[in-house]
Nucleic acid binder design. Structure first.
Lengths: 169, 169
DNA sequence: ATTTCTCAGGACAATTTGTATAGTGATCTA
DNA sequence: TAGATCACTATACAAATTGTCCTGAGAAAT
């Protein structure tokens, strides 16, 4: 069959059942395989197989504990755009990675810049962290902005819901 | 016979044992309470109590499934700084939240008003998503930069390790 | 027509969880 | 200083879950 779009498999990484399963686990992550099978109305072996496959494909990478940094005392989140010396990205990233308060670093288009998410206990603590970043060799310029609120917290749900709603075409 | 030495409880939200437990769960999230107690060398009841308390305090919010968006077909991540009309943040955020590809929104200090993380399947798909964002009422200006790489993926580990290393004092 | 997959359904032993209870040392309080 | 508390260890037991392995049916691919 000549076809750029298969019947049900091949190009669909996550099908409807997968999406429903992931959605279920998103809402109640502690559910066991057995309970999932009950909720989804399928056999336990099926759920088990689905999970295994998702892990195999690298879609599902695990169930890490979600920690609320705010509750841990790090009430401040800030984003920093870092300009660095040309060709020094690796070193700078290493330097940034050594700072515990640096929770995430991305290299972005623009001007070979880095985008950094940091947390801190207070404004003065943020000052300290920012100073640390500036002290990293080859960091040229740093522009920081503080997160005042987070209207949309990190989420994946809508993407899954779309898969669930629109089965493979 | 227990070798206790602890004495502080007041301002320490997460003590060393908590940190070790969370670190353990970070590395192997699927471990059960029993296994954790074995690894940590404490009684099962203790682990259970610690987990309960961490949840109670809001530090541990759950074990959501970690999904690799890349493996799901969303290989592109981009950050957008959005400038909006004064006093329209709520509406704009609602509009953004309605777009599945919008995975995170923060209101920030500084020039841009909102900071948005989006994912897309390809460059042209990103175009589509960006167009969607621009179409949200009251969005004035949008500046997007694509994430080329992620030298430091989202992490909390270092923060926990510091607690573990430096017991309350 | 035949092979290959996926999924439902069931079975079983071993392990884990949910709950309790009791004892001990240390800290807090009046 | 004498309780009262608190955190943790150590156990105990029933109920539920997990890890596996099998069988059979239906759909898709060859």
């Amino acid at each position: 069959m000549p076809s750029d779009q298969q019947s049900e498999h091949s190009d669909q990484v996550v099908d409807e059942l997968d999406a429903r399963l992931l959605l279920l686990l998103t809402d109640e992550p502690r559910l066991g395989v057995l309970e999932c099978s009950r909720r989804l109305g399928v056999a336990r072996g099926t759920v088990q197989a689905r999970l295994d496959r998702l892990v195999e494909r690298g879609v599902l990478t695990g169930f890490p504990p979600a920690l609320d940094l705010g509750a841990m005392g790090f009430g401040l989140t800030a984003f920093a755009v870092v300009e660095i010396a040309q060709g020094r990205r690796a070193e700078v990233c290493d330097g940034l990675a050594a700072i515990p308060e640096v929770c995430e670093v991305h290299a972005t288009t623009g001007q070979g810049d880095l985008f950094v998410r940091v947390v801190a206990r207070s404004n003065s603590d943020l000052q300290r962290v920012v100073d640390h970043i500036v002290d990293v060799p080859h960091v040229r310029r740093l522009s920081t902005s503080i997160a005042l609120s987070t209207p949309v917290p990190p989420r994946v749900r809508p993407l899954l819901e779309r898969v669930k709603g629109r089965p493979p075409k």
